[in-house]
């Protein structure tokens, strides 16, 4: 463990880091209201080299895989049963060169079909940034073989396009916990209710037989349709015995603008946990 920490510190304190080639994106979730049909993001190049940035829009929403990790389900040609905004939300500009420490606002404009029904429609924004060509080190004319790989970064953030009065909520069931090493892996089924994605926080508190909280977790969670996510609670050093895990899902997200969060009453559940 100590070796690993020392290794990490050594890696992070290295001299001679090259200028970063990337982009800062804010906010990390774009919510567009049908009344204005527009939104925006700000891109910023924090490095001291120009970055070539391109913007793309596609359809996708988060789901959980069989292990409880989240993944993006994408559909290239979404049919009318899927609430896709990918075909009619456009970004301006779509390509740009961001100079060192330069900022650019990207406008997102919704051009939905005239008969769009009330509801929430989803898309994903892909922001790809490439730096200038990175030199392959070595003497070019020596008849030698030089090898280098350049880096590209891509940021995928959600877009939600909302029309009409929308509601959200979540139903939860089937919570269970399994000890894995020095952690407790906790999973439960989450099914969205209402007409819009549930953007909330899942909090868990593990209490001992006296009711004292001995471990906890908190994780922002988005439920677009349904999820069965996995959370971990550190339980190293806890004595064997019976505990109660209380889980709460609430919509008080502090990383999103409050006026954009659809509120829903908190949902609570609990389960008994035996630690060996």
């Amino acid at each position: 463990m100590t070796r690993a920490i020392l290794l990490g510190l050594a890696l992070l304190s290295l001299p001679g880091r090259l200028p970063a080639q990337g982009v800062l994106v804010a906010p990390h979730d774009v919510i567009i209201d049908h009344r204005t049909r527009s939104g925006s993001i700000i891109l910023y190049n924090p490095g001291n080299q120009p970055a070539e940035v391109s913007i793309g829009v596609f359809f996708g929403y988060p789901v959980s895989d069989s292990s409880g990790f989240f993944m993006l389900r994408t559909v290239e040609q979404p049919d009318s049963t899927l609430p896709s905004a990918a075909g009619w939300v456009q970004a301006f500009p779509r390509r740009m060169i961001l100079g060192p420490r330069e900022r650019q606002t990207v406008r997102l404009l919704g051009r939905p079909p005239a008969n769009l029904r009330d509801g929430e429609y989803w898309a994903r924004l892909a922001i790809t940034a490439r730096g200038g060509t990175l030199p392959v080190t070595g003497a070019p004319d020596s008849g030698s073989v030089q090898v280098g790989l350049s880096l590209e970064v891509r940021t995928l953030i959600p877009i939600q396009y909302r029309k009409g009065e929308l509601t959200t909520g979540v139903e939860t069931s089937d919570w269970r916990a399994t000890r894995v090493g020095d952690s407790l892996e906790v999973r439960g089924k989450l099914v969205r209710t209402g007409t819009a994605a549930y953007l909330g926080v899942v909090r868990g508190a593990l209490a001992d037989s006296t009711g004292r909280t001995v471990a906890s977790f908190s994780s922002p969670t988005a439920v677009y349709l349904n999820m069965e996510p996995r959370y971990t609670v550190p339980v190293a050093g806890l004595p064997a015995g019976r505990y109660v895990l209380r889980v709460e899902l609430a919509t008080d997200r502090d990383d999103l603008a409050p006026e954009l969060v659809l509120r829903a009453p908190p949902v609570r559940d609990s389960l008994e946990v035996r630690l060996p």
Binding site: R17, L18, Q21, G22, H28, A139, S142, G148, D255
Partner: peptide, 27 residues
Amino acid sequence: PRPATAQLQVSGIRNLAFGTVIAGIPT
């Protein structure tokens, strides 16, 4: 306090550089 709208930044810092390699020998 953290601003209400958080940001995301992804950057490439250093390329993967093998430099000069010798033919026939994996590096």
